[in-house]
Computed example of a mutant assay.
Amino acid sequence: MTSLLEVSELRVAYPRRGFRARPREVLHGVSLTIGAGETLGVVGESGSGKTTIGRAVLGLVRPDGGRILFQGRDVTHASAKERRALARTRQVVFQDPYSSLSPSLTIGDILCEPLLVQGLPAREARAHVRALLDMVRLPKDALERLPREFSGGERQRVAIARALAPEPKLIVCDEPVSALDVSTQARVLDLFIDIQRRTGVAYLFISHDLAVIRHVSHRVSVVYGGDIVETGPADVVTSTPEDPYTRRLLLAAPVADPTEQRRRRELRRHLAEQVSTPP
């Protein structure tokens, strides 16, 4: 598989408030790769650093160490001009479909905007947008409607279409279904898979939910305290993990049987003793 993204020993620190306060390092040397047309799931609890990985890949935070290669090109410290040029090839789908779309623009305007910025004629842009609506399974009349007229799942489909508009090679999906109900989640996840089969786009898929990651990913990296503690095929990592922290994540999933739930709770307590506190 051709390598699309290579992240090596990535370190990121955020400043703290206060005089002489030392920056807080949130990534301590993270390394990962994504092949063309592949989905790498990145899973971890809140504050683990998984979203920071996505932001660094998109150029939204400046790394304090390490290297990011995209299509063989070093983009670790890309300038603002270089980041704008790279935006066509790297897109993002955010967590909240309610706040990620401009409430005052029609769906047609939202989807056409990135194409017009690239210099595509208006007629061609509208034709491309109609094809995108078909791809995300929204009706043609959506073009003239406002985001508030759609459900959460439909708004997230619009956000996916917007990310697809410039025909990127990689989409960073940052908790893209966590704001949706369970049945809608499954339909949107199936849509991600179908789009990947049709377009060959790669995903860096970020989530706190192992079940979601298992559904969409080819490989999985588990993040804990700013470090990747386990990486492997999705079916292996999400069923027979080796690291104690990953096993804790697996046991955190609720089950209907109260006896089994109690057993899992006891196992999680035991595993918690084996997991070191993150720095």
Rank of each mutant, 00 (worst) to 15 (best):
P278R: 08
S151Y: 08
R187F: 11
R162I: 05
L249E: 00
R269S: 14
A234S: 15
L27G: 06
G66R: 08
A163L: 05
L271A: 11
A13W: 03
A159I: 03
S207H: 02
S100G: 10
A252F: 10
Q91G: 04
G29R: 10
A163I: 06
P166H: 07
D209L: 06
R123G: 06
A122Q: 12
P103S: 02
T246R: 08
F19P: 11
T246Y: 09
T199S: 06
L32Q: 10
R248W: 12
Q118A: 15
G65W: 01
R130T: 09
D235R: 12
D174F: 01
L164Y: 00
V42H: 01
R126Q: 12
T52L: 04
L58D: 02
F150S: 04
D257N: 14
P176Q: 09
E113G: 05
A131H: 13
E273D: 14
A179K: 00
S276H: 13
L251G: 11
R73W: 04
R265L: 12
L189C: 10
D235H: 14
P15H: 10
D235C: 09
L58V: 02
V188Y: 03
E25P: 10
A127K: 15
L60N: 11
D109T: 15
E45T: 09
S46C: 08
P139Q: 12
Q71R: 14
V255G: 13
D134C: 00
T39G: 04
S104P: 00
L10W: 01
F150Q: 07
S48H: 07
Y224I: 01
A36Q: 14
V275D: 09
P278Q: 11
G232I: 06
A125W: 06
Q95H: 07
V93W: 06
A163E: 04
A127G: 01
L105M: 15
S8K: 15
T2M: 10
R55G: 08
L143A: 03
